[in-house]
Design a protein around this nucleic acid. Structure first.
Length: 573
RNA sequence: GUGCCUGUAGCCCAGUUGGAUAGAGCGUAAGUUUCCGAAACUUGAGGUCAUGGGUUCGAUUCCCAUCAGGCACACCA
C-alpha cells in the first residue's frame, strides 16, 4: 500500500538520520519506545503531493525546528518511487507515474482479489445479528442489522477471516404462548365469532394485535380443524413466522449459516449445565424465592435473576448458555450486533463469560442506534399502536439495492434517518444510483470499444475500434509500461483505486461498513470526473488501450466494493 | 436520578486516534453536450466544530462541567 510504503520509508530514513546524529536529542530508545506516532495522510492541498507524513511531533524530543527535522530525514529517503518536498513540518510525497501505472496492473492481475491483504491473522469469527423473535414480521430496524451484518460478514470474509453467520431464534418462553393466544383470536374472528383483543392497554400487552396474524389464521383453517390447544397454535404461528422471515432474508441477500433455536438449546441440557456450573462456582444466591447471579462482582450495576420464583428460567439464563456454546464451538471471536436499546445487557453477558472462566474480550458487541423513518419529510415514530412499517413493505417500495445501501451508509453510532422518498428517487440526490451509474457507464465504454459505430445522421457505419479478441488480449497482456499513457490525466482516479486497499483494512478492523459506502461514492465521483475530461475511445490506439485498462480497473474495484455491500453492479441501467 | 449514543455549512453526514487554509453529498447561484450513457461534469457562495472551562507549542479530536436530542434502566423476551 502506498500509505505503508511512504510511512515505512520515512521510519527507515529517521533511523538512519538518528544514527548519523542529525536529529538532535532524538535517540533510538525514544524511537523504539513507541511514543512517536507517525501517520501518512492525504495532504489538505493536492498540490503538495499525494501523501504526507507529519514529523512536527518529533520536535519536542529532538529540540530542533520541524522544517530542519523534515529536511534531515528527506536526505535518507530513496528516490526511485516518488519525489519529496518539505513544507513546514511535513514531508510530502509525489508518486511517480510508474508507481501509479502499477496500480492498474495489479488490479488487472488480481481482479476480484484486489484489496485482499496477504498476511493477516486469520480469525474464526461467529457473527450474530438480527436474531428477532419469531412472533411477527421484521420492522425496518431489523433491516439495518440485516444489511449491516451481512455486509460486515462479506467484508470480514473478503479481508480473509473465517466468518460464520448466525441467527438466534427466541422460540422459547412466554412470547410464543402469547403468539398462540393471539392467533386463536384471529381464528375465531375468521369463524365469525364476535371477539376482539382487549381494549385495556395493560391486558392488550398479552397479545400481538397486529393484523399480520390474519393471513396466518386463514391458512391455518385451510389446513386444520379449529382448536383451542394453544400449544398447537403457538407452534403453527411460530413456524409460519420463521418461514416468512427466512424468505425475506434470502430476498434481501442475507444468508445465515445457522438459525440457532433457543428451544434446542434448552433440550440439549446446556442451559441447565451452565446454570449448575455457576451454582457450583458459588456465583448464585437465593432471595425472595428467586435465584440470582452476582453479576455486580464483574462490573454490572445490579445482580440478575436466573431462575424466577415460579421456577422458570429468565432469558439471560439461556443466553449465557448460548454464548458459552459459541465459545465451546471454538470461535476466536464472537461479534454481536445489537440495537442500542439492549445496551444494558452487555455487562451481564460479559460477566457470565468471565464467571465461567471464558475470556470476555472475545465477545465484541456492536451497538447500533435505531432507525427513524421519514415519510414526506416527516419523522414517523414506530409507535406501539400506530401502524408499523415492515421491512418487506420498505423493500417493495424502494428495492433491495437502495434499502441495503441506505441502511449501511451511516456510522452505527448515529441514528439513521431513512427517507423513503429520497431512497426511491433515481436522481443525483440518491447515492446508490450515482454509484451504479458509474459502473454501468464503465461497462458501456468497454462495450463500445468493440462495437461498430453508426452515425446517427447519415446512418453510415464505421468499424469497431477493436475486436473483442484484441480487447481481451489488451487486458491479458497488459504491462505497466503500456499503461503509463493513461496515467498523466488520471492520477487522482488511480490514487483512489489504490486507496481501496487501505479502506478495506480500516473498514474491517473498525467494523465500519459505512466507509465502503463513502468510498464507492468517492470512486464513482473520480471516475465521472475523469470521463468528462478524457476520451477513452480515441484515435491514438495505445492511449485508448491504456485507458481501457484503467476503465476495466474502475469497473473491477466498483464491483468488488458493491459485492461486499450486497448491492448489484448493473452493466446497463 | 444513573448509564450509553449523538450535537460540525440551510439539510444529511465524514473527519483513520492531537497538527497545513475544518471536508464530501444534497439544496442553492452561475456555467458545460455536433463525439464513449447530462442518471454526468465544472466553478462559486455558505462554519464562533452546542456552550463554558482545563491539559498542550498546537484541540473538532483528550479531560471536566453545563445545555439539547435519542435509547435503556424487569422475577419481559
Amino acid at each position: 500500500m502506498f500509505k505503508e510504503l511512504v510511512l515505512n520509508d520515512t521510519l527507515d530514513a529517521i533511523k538512519k538520520a538518528v544514527q548519523n546524529k542529525e536529529l538532535g536529542e532524538l535517540t533510538e530508545e525514544i524511537l523504539n519506545s513507541g511514543d512517536i506516532k507517525l501517520v501518512s495522510e492525504k495532504p489538505k492541498n493536492a498540490d503538495f503531493g499525494d501523501f504526507a507524513v507529519n514529523v512536527a511531533s518529533m520536535a519536542r524530543y529532538a529540540r530542533i525546528a520541524p522544517p530542519v527535522i523534515a529536511n534531515n530525514i528527506v536526505k535518507y529517503l530513496p528516490t526511485d518511487n516518488y519525489t519529496t518536498s518539505v513544507v513546514a513540518g511535513f514531508i510530502n510525497f509525489k508518486l511517480s507515474d510508474k508507481e501509479l501505472a502499477q496500480v492498474i496492473e495489479e488490479i488487472l492481475d488480481k481482479k476480484e482479489n484486489f484489496g485482499k491483504p496477504e498476511n493477516i491473522k486469520k480469525e474464526k469469527i461467529n457473527l450474530e445479528y438480527v436474531s428477532a423473535n419469531p412472533t411477527g414480521p421484521f420492522h425496518i430496524g431489523h433491516g439495518r442489522w440485516a444489511a449491516m451484518g451481512s455486509s460486515l460478514a462479506n467484508l470480514l470474509k473478503f479481508y480473509g477471516h473465517d466468518v460464520y453467520q448466525e441467527f438466534y431464534i427466541n422460540d422459547a418462553g412466554s412470547q410464543i404462548q402469547k403468539l398462540g393466544r393471539s392467533l386463536n383470536i384471529r381464528i375465531k374472528q375468521e369463524l365469525g365469532e364476535n371477539i376482539d383483543f382487549p381494549e385495556d392497554e395493560e391486558e392488550r400487552k398479552n397479545y400481538y394485535a397486529g393484523e399480520y396474524l390474519i393471513p396466518v389464521a386463514k391458512k391455518f383453517l385451510e389446513e386444520n380443524k379449529p382448536t383451542d390447544d394453544i400449544q398447537v397454535l403457538s407452534d403453527y404461528a411460530k413456524e409460519y413466522m420463521e418461514r416468512v422471515q427466512r424468505e425475506l432474508l434470502e430476498n434481501f441477500r442475507v444468508h445465515f449459516d445457522k438459525f440457532y433455536s433457543e428451544l434446542d438449546l434448552h433440550k440439549s441440557g446446556k442451559v441447565e449445565h451452565y446454570f449448575n456450573e455457576l451454582k457450583n462456582k458459588g456465583e448464585l444466591y437465593e432471595q425472595d424465592g428467586a435465584i440470582w447471579f452476582k453479576t455486580t462482582k464483574y462490573g454490572d450495576d445490579q445482580d440478575r435473576v436466573l431462575k424466577k420464583a415460579d421456577g422458570a428460567n429468565t432469558y439471560l439464563t439461556a443466553d449465557i448458555a448460548y454464548h458459552m456454546d459459541k465459545l465451546d464451538r471454538g470461535f476466536d471471536r464472537l461479534i454481536n450486533i445489537w440495537g442500542a436499546d439492549h445496551h444494558g445487557y452487555v455487562a451481564r453477558v460479559k460477566a457470565s463469560i468471565e464467571a465461567l472462566g471464558g475470556n470476555p474480550d472475545k465477545l465484541e458487541i456492536l451497538l447500533g442506534q435505531l432507525v427513524n423513518l421519514i415519510i414526506n419529510g416527516e419523522e414517523v415514530r414506530m409507535g406501539k399502536r400506530r401502524k408499523m412499517v415492515t421491512l418487506d413493505e420498505l423493500i417493495d417500495e424502494v428495492g433491495v439495492d437502495a434499502t441495503r445501501f441506505w441502511m449501511s451508509m451511516r456510522s452505527i453510532d448515529t441514528t439513521l434517518d431513512f427517507d423513503i422518498e429520497l431512497a426511491k428517487r433515481s436522481t443525483d440526490e440518491n447515492p446508490v444510483f450515482y454509484v451504479q451509474y458509474a459502473h454501468a457507464r464503465a461497462c458501456s465504454i468497454l462495450r463500445n470499444a468493440i462495437k461498430e459505430k453508426i452515425n446517427a445522421e447519415t446512418g453510415e457505419t464505421s468499424p469497431a475500434p477493436m475486436s473483442e479478441e484484441e480487447l481481451n488480449d489488451t487486458f491479458k497482456n497488459f504491462n505497466s509500461e503500456a499503461m503509463l499513457k493513461a496515467v498523466p490525466t488520471a492520477k487522482s482516479l488511480i490514487l483512489k483505486l489504490e486507496e481501496f486497499k487501505s479502506m478495506i483494512e480500516y473498514s474491517a478492523k473498525t467494523r465500519a461498513v459505512y466507509t465502503i459506502c463513502r468510498y464507492v461514492q468517492d470512486l464513482a465521483s473520480e471516475f465521472h470526473s475523469f470521463y468528462n475530461s478524457n476520451r477513452v475511445i480515441c484515435e491514438d490506439k495505445d492511449l485508448m488501450k491504456s485507458r481501457l485498462c484503467l476503465i476495466y480497473a474502475v469497473k473491477t474495484v466498483l464491483k468488488n466494493a458493491l459485492d461486499i455491500l450486497g448491492v448489484s453492479a448493473p452493466e446497463k441501467m
